[in-house]
Every structure is written in C-alpha cells, then in structure tokens.
Simulated scan of single mutants.
Amino acid sequence: MNQLGINLLVFKNELDKGIKQEQILEQIEALGVHIAEIRRECLKNLAEEIPIINKLAKEFGIELYYSVPEKVACEKKLNPDINVYFEEAKLMGASHIKFNIGDLVELSLDEIKKLRDIIYKFEIKVTIENDQTPENGNLKCVIDAIDIINKNSLPIGYTFDLGNWYWQNEDPENAFDILRSAITVFHLKNVEFLNNKPTTTLLSEGQINWKAMLKKLSNNVPVMIEYPIRNEDIRGELEEVRKILL
C-alpha cells in the first residue's frame, strides 16, 4: 500500500499567519499521517527551527521529507550550496530531499561524480521534481534529466507533481503515462481553470483524473498531498485519497 504524506503547503493559511511548521506536526500526527514534507522557504530561522522539527518528528513518529526550492545544478556546475542543504536535511533527520532540476543534464562527468559522492556521503534519498517553470517543468526537460540520471547510475529519484504540468501547458495524463516507471514520489493535487489560468482546488472539483493514476502507481511510491486546503477540508481530502490507496 502506498504511504500517504502531507506537504506543509496544505497548511498555507497557518503559515501565512506566521505559524511555524514545527507547530503543525502534531496536527499531522492527529490526522493519522506519518510523513510530512517540510518546505525550506517557509523556515524563518533555520538554526533554531530545524532541531525542534527533528525532536518533534521523532516524538510524533513522523518521517520527514525536505523540499528545497533550489536547482541541483546551475551554470553547468553543482549548486555551490548543495552541501548546506544536505547538512540541513541531516540535522532535521529527513530521509528524503527534493530539488529543482536546473542544469543537471549539462553537468560534466566530474560534477556528476561529485554529486554521486555527496549523495552517498549523506545517505539521504534524493529526488528532482517538475515544477511550474519552463526550465524545470516541461516534459522534455524532465525526460532529459531522467535519461542523464539513468545513463550515469545516479541515485536520484523523481517526484511527479501532478498539477504542475498545467502551468507549462502540458497534459498531465500523457506525462504520467510516459514517466510512470521513473516515479519514486507522487505529489497529488487537482486543478481547475479560472479566467483561463490554472489554480489548485479540492480533489473532487478539479479536472484531472487522479484516481486512475493512483490505481496505476506502484504501491511502493509515497503519495504526498500538496496544495493549500482549508482546515475543515483536510480530513475529507485525506479520506478521498485513502479510499483509492486501500
């Protein structure tokens, strides 16, 4: 059975009010969820918050994923701060770390070796993700990145973000069919169009046939809910997903 997790974007209303991610972990545990994805851009004081998140996650029995909205590589070199991000993930006790693709396909063999060595050193699972930008979010760049990963035997997985394809005018169902075998984490959201622009919505109100995709997904792939939800709707959204994953 696929594990079900929550990306802290679900609690955007609270985060916008200044509530810290550490304060939300207990709510996640109370919802019967045992995976939480922490968002780096929402950490205001990393040195202070990361150890607290580590402690509370252990207390509540929550596995941590760490979302870093930075490119794994830029200007044909590894991101100069990549070790910093891995150190943060280690201090947090995160089992996974996620990056944007960036210039991964343009890395030299030396840079690829450096990346491989860093991943093995920290022993944290790594994924790249299709985001909402042209350089990281269209189907071709994802296919090219996965091809480089496979050719160089890099220990990097792929986070498939279901809704983000619409921001690049891509068909999410076509992308899923092409990329399904590479998916190691699944970010679940649904999308509707307002004034011809995509926006996330409740799972039952969007236009993506997400249920069919989850049924085709390998059962070892974690499913992370990742879109802003009103507090009163969170439990119902989780139940919608659990019905399919059972």
Rank of each mutant, 00 (worst) to 15 (best):
I149P: 00
N209K: 14
W167G: 01
E173P: 02
E173T: 09
A175F: 08
S153K: 13
H187A: 12
P155D: 06
D131R: 04
N196V: 09
K140Q: 10
I148K: 12
D161S: 06
N138F: 05
W167A: 08
T127R: 03
N164L: 02
F122V: 09
G137V: 00
I148P: 00
L203T: 11
T201Y: 05
D144H: 03
N164V: 04
L203S: 07
F193A: 06
N196F: 12
N190L: 06
D161R: 04
P155N: 06
I143P: 00
I208Y: 04
A175C: 12
D147R: 08
D177Y: 15
S204A: 12
S204I: 11
T199K: 14
F186M: 10
I208N: 00
N169K: 12
D177G: 12
Q168C: 08
F176H: 05
N130C: 04
P198H: 02
Y166V: 06
N152A: 03
T127N: 10
K125Y: 12
D177A: 13
K151Q: 12
G157Q: 11
T201F: 04
T200D: 08
G206I: 11
D131A: 10
A175D: 04
A145H: 01
E135F: 02
D177W: 15
N150K: 14
F160A: 01
T127M: 13
S181W: 07
V185Q: 09
G157Y: 12
L179A: 09
E123T: 14
D131Q: 02
